[in-house]
Amino acid sequence: MKYFVALFLLFSLSVHAEEAGREGAGDGDAAIREEVLTVKEAVLELNKDLYALERELLSPATARASFHLSLNYGKFFTPMSLTLSVDGKVQIQHLYTEQQFRALKMGAVHPLGDLNLSPGKHTVTALVRGVDHLGQDLELNVAQTVTKTSKPLITELLITDKEDLQSARLELKYW
């Protein structure tokens, strides 16, 4: 649908541009540029609305579950990869780069993605592989049963340092 709307707008723009071209090159050019910008903005706006509508239809609030990851200090653990499973099925996988790790250390929250979950209980399992402060391989994992209601579920996987153990732990939190 949105492709047809975009095509229609582009078509009407080209017709308009042709008409304007006949009127005179000088003022016409500036007007056309202005018109092009307006139409482009309109198309972008429309695309955004259509995307939101599509998302709403495909992933309604009753089924939406968002997952995020954050790192608290990151002194004792560097995450390298993440695997998130729901009810035993792998749903999200991610590899962390240097830039992303730096961003996490500075407080960024990484949106892992949205899933569709039916209302009820689900088992969420997350496994984060990485290295500790000594460069040794370390795996952090968490398995938790979450209850999905008719409201959107927003969760955060939080990696926190544990000073006393000189290690880190992974927790699943709700927003």
Partner: peptide, 15 residues
């Protein structure tokens, strides 16, 4: 591409 490295963090071409 983003590929894991045998040591260290993954490398991404866009980075």
């Amino acid at each position: 591409f983003t590929l894991p490295a045998n040591k260290g963090l993954a490398q991404s071409l866009h980075e």
